[in-house]
Each structure stands twice: as structure tokens, then as C-alpha cells.
């Protein structure tokens, strides 16, 4: 086995690299690569991805493994599983990391099962144990607890990392590019994408955002979610929602924050007409500052927020948003 540490590149639908990739590269270099004495490598899988290598070098990648194939288009799980497992078998890295995105959660455990590795999901800290095995921390039990887990070693150690947990810092390197070592066959792909619907959004992604404004069932309609979007845009924030709001059709599923949806930990989380369920808190309870606007003084969220107003959102939000806007434009 080598002492190399790999980071699998997380791509957005538009083909750009997610911030979590740079965060993982930076943290891996700091906490793992220097101690292990191997190389920091990126793994770039996708269709039409060549050209992104230099960006990975900017964050310290010394080597970039590239598999560029039409069959990896649209985040094809099976293609990813084959390509990554093959690369791992050929090169036997010590550690492989990826972002804990919706897609990461889909293919990563399958790769681990294929190569017989252990895998830890959604790490918020990574490090090495005394005997140089991977050691991580992660949330469990509806995010009420933090587990420390250590790998047995002996096989490649795999983990996904939670976006926004580490700081990305540039550390320029000129990576060696290695491609062409894996062949994919159309016959290997059994799950076929027959429709892909994407919506472009100018707002930051929930998991990457420094500020989040979320709405709950109390918004009462899709139309009223404009209050959420307006405040979010003024603050440069991402827009989120509870399951109750998503369920009622007020907003799309990818806005859901919580145990089922996205896990976020921004500096500022503004919860509007959200009661504060355990499942919602599982996704945002680690936010630095939590603000609640709710008309029910007994709502559980008032027991676990920093600031709040007991009031009707339709009364409070217009003047609040107006004043925030004035403040922001003042600079």
C-alpha cells in the first residue's frame, strides 16, 4: 500500500468544482499527507473534465488521476464506482476522501464494499491515530452526539467529509496528470438516466453558504416564499426550508434542511415560521448563530436559538428585510 492521500473531485451540474474538494485537499495536506509522507492526489472523474487539473494544483494536488468518459456523464453512479474502485486497486492509496454530497453518499459506500474497505461518512474532523490510521469525528444520533471513529488499517481507508467543515487554502503545485488507466464499457452501466431536470440558481449552495435563510410551514404558500428569497438575496445567503414546507409544495426538495435533507453549519441561520423539530435541528443545529421568527411563543425553537422575535412573519419580515437592505447598501 502507498502512503498517498486521494481526494475525489466533487463536480456541480455545471461542471465546476465544488468548494468541498478544495477544503478536503487543504485539510488532507495539513492533517494526513505531511505525517504519512506520501503525495496529495486528486481524482477527477466525469465527462469533458480535462482542463480542471490546474485548479486542483492550486490547492496542493501533486498528482491528478483523470478518467474522462462519456459514460460518467450526469453523475453516473455505476461508472464512478467502477472507475474509482479500479484506480484504488491499481494504486492502493492509504486514504481516499470525497465530499459528503448527495452524490458522494450514493457511490462512495459502494466503492468501499467493492474493494473491502472501511468507510466513514460525513466527517467534520480528520486526523491520524498514533499508528497512522485515519481517525475522524462525525455527528450521530440525529446530530445530538459526536462520535470519534478510528480505522483498523490494512486496507485503503475511506471517508466523506462534510462541506464547510474545513477552510480551503491555496498551496500551489503543478500536478502530474495521469489518465487512460481505466476503461469503461457501456454494458457496465445498468441504471440509465432518462430525464434530467436542472434549475439554475444564482444563490449559493446550501451546504457551502455562510448564511442561510429558511422558511417553514408557516409561510403558507409557494408565493410567500418570495419573502425568504428576498431576505436571502440581500444577505447573500442560501435559501432553505423544512420538510413540512417542501411537502406542501412551497419549494423544491433540494432546499430541505435536516436529517433527510442537507446538513448546514453557517455562521448565521435565520429560521422563519419553523417550529424547531429534532429532525430539522439535525441539519442545522451546529450553526453558529440561530435566529427565529415565529408567532408561537411556545415553539420549541425559542428554547434553542440565540435571537428571536415572537411575531407574525408577515408583520415582521417586510420592515426587517427593508432595514437589512438599507444596512447592506450602506456597506
Amino acid at each position: 500500500m502507498s502512503n498517498d492521500v486521494w481526494v475525489v473531485v466533487d463536480l456541480k451540474l455545471d461542471g465546476t468544482i465544488r468548494k468541498v474538494t478544495f477544503e478536503a485537499l487543504t485539510e488532507a495536506k495539513k492533517k494526513l499527507v505531511d505525517k504519512l509522507g506520501g503525495q496529495l492526489c486528486a481524482v477527477l472523474l466525469g465527462s469533458g473534465v480535462s482542463g480542471l487539473e490546474s485548479e486542483l494544483g492550486k490547492y496542493g494536488a501533486q498528482k491528478v488521476y483523470v478518467v474522462d468518459s462519456e459514460l460518467l456523464k450526469d453523475f453516473n453512479t455505476e461508472g464512478y464506482v467502477i472507475a474509482l474502485s479500479e484506480l484504488i486497486k491499481q494504486n492502493e492509496p492509504a486514504v481516499v476522501l470525497a465530499g459528503n454530497t448527495v452524490f458522494g453518499q450514493d457511490y462512495f459506500p459502494r466503492v468501499a464494499a467493492r474493494i473491502g474497505s472501511g468507510v466513514a461518512m460525513d466527517a467534520i474532523k480528520i486526523d491520524l491515530s498514533g499508528d497512522n490510521n485515519l481517525q475522524i469525528e462525525r455527528y450521530s444520533h440525529s446530530s445530538k452526539a459526536i462520535q470519534k471513529q478510528v480505522f483498523h488499517g490494512g486496507t485503503t481507508m475511506m471517508a466523506t467529509v462534510r462541506p464547510n467543515s474545513f477552510k480551503a487554502e491555496e498551496a500551489p503545485a503543478t500536478p502530474e496528470v495521469i489518465s487512460g488507466s481505466v476503461e469503461l464499457n457501456p454494458g457496465d452501466i445498468k441504471v440509465k438516466v432518462i430525464e434530467l431536470e436542472t434549475k439554475a440558481s444564482d444563490r449559493p449552495e446550501l451546504t457551502e453558504a455562510d448564511r442561510v435563510v429558511s422558511g417553514g410551514r408557516g409561510l403558507a404558500s409557494e408565493e410567500n416564499f418570495k419573502y425568504i428569497y428576498e431576505l436571502a438575496d440581500i444577505l447573500g445567503a442560501a435559501a432553505g426550508a423544512t420538510r413540512a414546507a417542501v411537502d406542501a409544495g412551497y419549494c423544491p426538495y433540494d432546499m430541505q434542511v435536516g436529517q433527510t435533507g442537507k446538513a448546514v453549519s453557517p455562521n448565521l441561520y435565520i429560521a422563519i415560521a419553523i417550529s424547531g423539530s429534532v429532525q430539522h435541528f439535525a441539519g442545522m443545529g451546529s450553526s453558529k448563530v440561530i435566529v427565529a421568527i415565529n408567532k408561537d411563543p411556545e415553539a420549541p425553537i425559542f428554547q434553542k436559538c440565540d435571537y428571536g422575535i415572537v411575531g407574525d412573519l408577515f408583520d415582521i419580515l417586510p420592515p426587517f428585510t427593508e432595514k437589512v437592505k438599507a444596512l447592506v447598501s450602506e456597506g
Binding site: 456541480k12 440509465k192 434530467l196 449552495e205 426538495y253 433540494d254
Partner: peptide, 16 residues
């Protein structure tokens, strides 16, 4: 045939 949600949209996939 299943619909699944992804970041920034959804996909419909056909699986044997």
C-alpha cells in the same frame, strides 16, 4: 423507473 432528487434538480432513471 424512479425519480430521485439531486443537488440542483432531479433525475428520472430506469433500472433493471
Amino acid at each position: 423507473v424512479c425519480q430521485k432528487e439531486i443537488d440542483g434538480g432531479h433525475v428520472v432513471v430506469e433500472v433493471p
